[in-house]
């Protein structure tokens, strides 16, 4: 309504708990008497450019594979095709999931809540949705919300993809996600934004939202989009930091990249061939 009437911004004056907000456009965070505080918090929230966003159509083409050593990273990349996500009831290998879903390629997904190798728990860090789910499954573990704020929320539907900074308190209801993309079929929360608009993010920028072990040497994995809007994912065959990984991906022409779970879970598969593992 504000836009129709020619205003640049507006605010609601309803008082209520932030976590009970109806959506991202109606956040019960500040009443009109606390505007000064809102501006202060806004300045803190955009530090390190965390309000970056990506929105583009998905370009679907043949699935291609390439490998190259770039900036000390043994990169193995798969691009093309149409992406879809899958959440297992327990835990499964990527090869089995590729086979079971009739897919041609796959990579391990995002970070899971229980890292123990013997665990069979399938809870993920952050919200998630697959085509099989009617609504987004929110992350209601409020104790980790402060750490997750502004991490890259990746979503797509049949016509386009987007990456937005995640705001846990206002992204609880499915409706909040639909405001970003009405026909969204898949979403998950990346561990850190590694490359944006073809530029590698700095160590400080990665650590501003990523976990403290982002700079550990691990076999790293990512998902994102190239300059043409094609999905691209890949992993390293050697152990590298997220900073090195980001630099090498930007060098290879990756436009947007978010960090996936890396280390023991790293797994890149094309058909029956395993090309990288943890």
């Amino acid at each position: 309504l504000a836009r129709i009437l020619g205003y640049k911004m507006s605010f609601t004056i309803a008082n209520g708990l932030a976590e009970e907000s109806p959506g991202i456009l109606e956040v019960n965070r500040y009443v009109h008497t606390r505007m000064e505080k809102a501006w202060e918090d806004r300045d803190k929230a955009i530090k390190n450019g965390v309000t970056y966003r990506y929105e583009a159509p998905i370009t679907v083409g043949p699935i291609t594979y390439e490998s190259e050593k770039v900036e000390g990273c043994d990169l193995r990349l798969i691009r093309g095709g149409m992406p879809t996500t899958f959440i297992s009831d327990a835990r499964q290998g990527v090869s089995d999931l590729v086979k079971a879903t009739g897919s041609q390629a796959g990579i391990n997904g995002t970070f899971f809540a229980m890292a123990a190798i013997k665990s069979t728990d399938n809870r993920l860090v952050g919200p998630s949705k697959t085509p099989e789910m009617a609504e987004v499954l929110p992350d209601m573990e409020t104790t980790r919300w402060p750490k997750l704020r502004n991490r890259p929320l990746v979503m797509w539907g049949p016509y386009g993809a987007a990456i937005y900074p995640y705001q846990p308190a206002t992204m609880v209801q499915d409706r909040a996600y639909r405001e970003g993309m009405l026909d969204m079929t898949d979403c998950f929360l990346g561990g850190a934004w590694l490359v944006h608009q073809g530029m590698a993010r700095t160590r400080e920028q990665i650590l501003a939202t990523g976990s403290s072990d982002s700079m550990d040497y691990r076999r790293r994995a990512f998902f994102g989009f190239d300059m043409d809007g094609r999905p691209i994912c890949g992993a390293t065959y050697n152990s590298v930091t997220s900073e090195q990984f980001a630099v090498s991906l930007a060098e290879k022409g990756v436009s947007e990249a978010v960090l996936l779970d890396s280390g023991f879970s790293t797994s890149l598969v094309l058909g029956e061939k395993i090309l990288a593992s943890g």
């Binding site: 699935i63 899958f86 835990r91 879903t101 041609q104 796959g106 998902f223 094309l270």
Partner: peptide, 25 residues
Amino acid sequence: PIPHAILLKGEVDKASEELAKKDEI
């Protein structure tokens, strides 16, 4: 084994399949 995966569906480029054979672990 992992609880979440990103899968790609589409036609696989023939030359890429050959290249992947060399890198298979």
